[in-house]
Simulated assay, not measured.
Amino acid sequence: MNGNNSTVPYWRLSGFYWFYFASLGALVPYWSLYLKELGYAAQDIGFLMAIILATKIVSPNIWGWIADHTGQRMNIVRLGSLLAAVSFAGVYVSDGYGWLVVVMVLFSFFWNAALPQFEAITFNYLQHQTHRYSNIRLWGSIGFIVTVMLLGPALDRWSAGILPHALLLLFAGIWLSSLTVQERPSGVVRGSHESLIKLLKTPAVLALLSVCLLMQMSHGPYYTFYTIYMEAHGYSRSLIGQLWGLGVIAEVAVFLLLPKLVPRLGLRILLVISLFLAAVRWWLIGYFVESLWIMVFAQVLHAATFGVYHASAIQLIHRYFIGRHQGRGQALYSSLSFGAGGAVGSFYSGLTWDALGAQFTFEIAVVIALTAALVAWFWIPPESDTNQTSASQTKVV
């Protein structure tokens, strides 16, 4: 992929990913820290973080259904981005628990509408060059890195009270960047509702969606408590921000390599490798937190546990869900993995963190990741079978 391809608005697509994941770089590592400074306990923090993820179970599917039936994906992206920013501004009204629950539900319902539909737009622009998706998506990772590394020292200096200001600016940036991207309809003939139901019953699709659910469940302790966990073991917020950033730098590096790795190894093998390395990563974080160098290595593994995993999973989703099902396919991926999986992960982490300890909580994550690796190995077919499945679906949609 290069910027001079006239059919692909490389920088406009990349700009949206930059702002969206820059906001994620502020929200995921530091929102729990902000809630802790407000005086909330681990169980309350786990629940509030779970809300952001739980709305992904419902929101992407509602908006995906609307997008697939209207074809107005970019209008949905723009509307969702704008209403997310407006809803989030509610944090300035009160920091009471009940009010924050309401704000998080509204904000995340609209915020979670945007990305799955934008992913579908990106793949529609790429058409048969889907292996080059990572060259656009890497700018989201760069946005995450910039935000997480700048905010770490800033929070050390001024406290977590500045976080809502930073987030609101980034949410506004998401909306503004969405205005620059034009609609791009799919070139595949639309299919029927029955064909989607039939597709969801196939063993390979069920296995893939189960793997996505389990993978994000395993991330629960990391996304919810990693910053708090590291700070409790003597790491400064600046250093914690650098460790978050290091993980995403490794992710960017692997995104640059993936266009060569995918044709060579295949999506299934890459997916299994990423799931196994996730188990290794959670074990290292749970047992060796006192060692900075092991923590550095664990963060480098983010290249596999997010970069390789996400690029492999989303391309498999795109192969299975074609035509009018693209929006709902991306929505299912988002809702079952980052939504249901992330919410369950945050919830069990909140329940076990104080009661059973951080190490035990990461042990749960190890078991979940290994289970996902076994499901992927035994029930997701090799690349040739996946291509044949996609070809047969083209005939019925």
Rank of each mutant, 00 (worst) to 15 (best):
L292K: 04
S349C: 03
W63T: 08
I269D: 14
S195D: 15
A114P: 07
I136M: 04
F110V: 04
I317E: 09
I269R: 08
Q359F: 05
A207D: 12
H128C: 04
L316C: 12
S390I: 06
M74E: 09
F19Y: 06
L167N: 03
Q117P: 14
R132K: 05
Q242S: 07
G286N: 02
R281K: 10
F297M: 02
A331I: 03
F118L: 05
L163Y: 12
L208H: 07
K36M: 06
V77R: 07
Y133P: 00
F288H: 10
L167E: 06
R78L: 03
V101D: 10
A391G: 10
F338G: 01
N75P: 05
V181Y: 05
V366D: 02
Y222W: 06
T70V: 10
H131E: 14
I121M: 03
R184A: 08
L257V: 11
V289K: 02
L208A: 03
L275Q: 05
A279I: 01
W353L: 01
V188E: 15
L356E: 12
L106A: 11
V396D: 15
L370D: 12
T7E: 13
L257A: 15
G143R: 06
V189I: 09
S94A: 13
M49T: 02
R268T: 06
A250G: 11
L316E: 14
L79V: 10
V86E: 09
S108F: 06
R137T: 05
L213S: 01
D44L: 01
A84Q: 03
T55Q: 09
H193V: 12
I51K: 00
F107N: 04
I142Y: 10
I249Y: 07
V252F: 13
N4P: 02
F110A: 05
A311D: 13
E251R: 03
V188I: 15
A253M: 14
M217D: 09
T180L: 13
I240C: 00
L126V: 11
L53Y: 14
L53K: 12
Q242H: 14
G345I: 02
R73Q: 11
V248A: 08
F297P: 00
V262Y: 13
A204S: 15
Y34L: 01
N135I: 07
K201Y: 14
D44W: 02
F110L: 08
F360Q: 03
S94V: 11
L100D: 08
A114Y: 13
R190G: 15
I121E: 10
W139T: 04
